Computed example of a mutant assay.
Amino acid sequence: MKILFIAPSYKPAYIYGGPIVVIARLAERLVQLGHEVTVYTTTANGNKELDVPLKEPVMIDGVTVRYFKRITGDHTHISPSLYAYTWSTAKQYDVVHIHSWWNFAVLGAALIFMLRGVKPVLSPHGMFCDYVLNANNRAKKKLIHAVIGKQLLKKTYLHVSSQIEWNECLDINKNWKGANIFNLVDLPSGEYKRDERPVFTISFLSRIDPKKGLDILIRALSGVSFPYRLQIAGSGNEEYVQQLKKMVSDLGMEEHVEWVGWMNTEQKFPFLAGSDLFALTSLNENFAIVVIESLYVGTPVLISNNVGLCNYVEENGFGWITGIESVTEIRQKLTEAYHNKKERNEITSRARRIIDRDFNEAKLAGDYVKLYESTNAI
């Protein structure tokens, strides 16, 4: 099968976080299954541009990638050259898979496919959750949706990675047809040593952003009665990071909190394995790869009910689910996790086996192929 991915950004633009990894991992695994995958994307790399060839395709881990110059250095990702090339080649592929929404690289391509009579699969990657819809540029999003977005979405098949995201998307387009398939997660083959820690250690690993609810977690921990250490891995806007550090200082928590900075792939798995509990009290997450990464190394999780994987965690008994409206509730869940060492050890003993089964990349990629093959019949 000849498969085309449309994405506003692609690796090595890791500044955009998880979606870059997810999109690339799927493309690479589809190639390994014998399919031909091409990616059309822009040179977007935050406020800068990737230093990549523009006139010739680039082969990256088996995937053919065509980078197109964007004329805006912001999240709109406007790229006339991408539009022109998409128009001329739209009919050359068996399947088109669009990733993301609310940027003009993707919206423009979606319009072209509608005009050319091509009905793509769309993975919004959380772009239709209430948090995103009501965040920056709310009025512009409503206008775009009313003028053209609603019509474009009717001409797509839907792919989501969690039940929460599926429900959010049906609020946008109640007649959508598609599938709920987990994201592929790049999991290493090695074992990770889990030594006994002198104090109950809680890890946080993510972008440090208001969306991640780290401030809520800090406030909840400030009132617990048990000894703990919170290790925060990640980077973010320096002004916001300083606000959080001031909060830690004002709450008298400095001796309990360690800021360990951003971690690469090789560093993050030992880091997660070195904690008793991973915590993510996000305001919204359509999936959250780090939850699977944590469980893979045997670390139980405490996550908010706004995290897409909360149903999966609850069904498998992998940790604790909390609301985020009440700091008291989060504090109670943290206390339960601390005292229930037997349950934590039980999760550690079985989590990896289940993750290996449910997140087998060949199996998941095969599910995507089934979705692609069924699109003409949906």
Score class of each variant (00 low, 15 high):
Thr265Glu: 11
Ala279Leu: 03
Ser222Thr: 06
Arg66Ala: 07
Arg194Phe: 10
Trp101Met: 08
Ser374Pro: 07
Met247Arg: 06
Gly178Arg: 00
Ser79His: 00
Ala362Tyr: 14
His97Ile: 01
Gly366Glu: 00
Tyr157Ala: 10
Glu28Lys: 10
Val95Trp: 09
Glu285Lys: 11
Ser162Phe: 07
Glu314Ser: 15
Arg70Ile: 07
Glu165Tyr: 09
Pro227Ile: 09
Asn180Thr: 14
Arg353Asp: 14
Ala220His: 12
Leu251Gly: 07
Glu168Cys: 08
Val369Arg: 09
Lys11His: 07
Ile232Leu: 04
Leu272Lys: 01
Ile355Thr: 05
Gly73Phe: 14
Arg344Ser: 01
Lys268Ile: 05
His77Lys: 09
Gly298Ser: 06
Thr86Pro: 02
Phe278Arg: 12
Pro53Asp: 02
Val313Asp: 09
Lys333Arg: 15
Asn136His: 15
Thr64Ala: 11
Ser294Ile: 05
Gly234His: 06
Gly190Asn: 15
Lys212Met: 06
Ala7Lys: 01
Ala139Thr: 13
Ala273His: 05
Ile181Gln: 04
Lys11Val: 13
Met263Asn: 08
Gly17Asp: 01
Ala233Tyr: 08
Phe269Tyr: 10
Leu170Tyr: 11
Ser203Trp: 03
Val301Pro: 07
Val118His: 09
Lys2Tyr: 11
Leu214Ile: 02
Ile181His: 04
Leu122Gly: 11
Tyr131Arg: 10
Gly17Asn: 01
Thr42Glu: 02
Thr156Asp: 07
Ser9Leu: 13
Gly252Ser: 10
Gln231Leu: 14
Ile6Glu: 03
Val185Pro: 06
Asn311Trp: 11
Arg352Gly: 09
Gly73Lys: 15
Val291Glu: 09
Ala110Met: 14
Val95Leu: 07
Asn136Pro: 10
His35Leu: 02
Met127Leu: 13
Val118Gln: 09
Asp130Met: 09
Ala233Phe: 09
